[in-house]
Design a protein around this nucleic acid. Sequence first.
DNA 1: CGGTATCCTTTCGGATACTG
DNA 2: CAGTATCCGAAAGGATACCG
Lengths: 119, 119
Amino acid sequence: MDDACTINLTVRYLTKKWMLLIILELYKGDDHTRRFSDLRDSLDGITPKVLSERLKELEDEGILTRKVDATAFPIKAEYTLTASGLEIVEVIRGIKRWALKWKIENIPCGKQDCGVCVL
Amino acid sequence: MDDACTINLTVRYLTKKWMLLIILELYKGDDHTRRFSDLRDSLDGITPKVLSERLKELEDEGILTRKVDATAFPIKAEYTLTASGLEIVEVIRGIKRWALKWKIENIPCGKQDCGVCVL
DNA sequence: CGGTATCCTTTCGGATACTG
DNA sequence: CAGTATCCGAAAGGATACCG
């Protein structure tokens, strides 16, 4: 089973839809932190179900930590990138560099102010 | 549409099942070249349909080139990594480094002789 | 606010058989 | 050898509604 391979195990979840975008949103946040509704609003088109699933997977993988303040009302939940999560951003940068080098016709993200994947 | 983003456009196809493994197989081949049946045999469990699809996608993305010798019998087809294809291996290395650093319990690929994803 | 529960559609990939 | 053609089941993700 090729699934036992580190690379594939990793790629499997890192490449699910929205995954990288969520990591980037967290990265862009103050202290690399963001709230649930904040993420939902930033990621145009994502549904709460999928966002919730992804956040749980990322937490399971140790890429982010979740802190809930249940005493507050309304409830406040914060998601923060861990050290390993911050390092994944480097991998994403690598992908972006590759893409910009070989797919230059793809203008949008060449801009420093690309709202989607600023790196 | 977030699909217009370079990173996501790239990740979309790079992360399809078998994709990275195919690139690695090509990378391991002499002159980073391999034949169809060779790939099919090396990638345990892949079906000709999927392999064919993936190779076409990789060719479309300029990651490999295809050369067919139709005069020969049986027909001989060779797939070779391009310059950009070779550079993607670096990205994959980045993922592997990250995984080995943060997911060390995942032993198999720590070995230099891991047959699946030697890098 | 921060989710969960359902349902439903679509997409993907596997199995198998066949062809130039 | 190097694929293509069909068919099918599983799984992922979207839409929507509802709850603590």
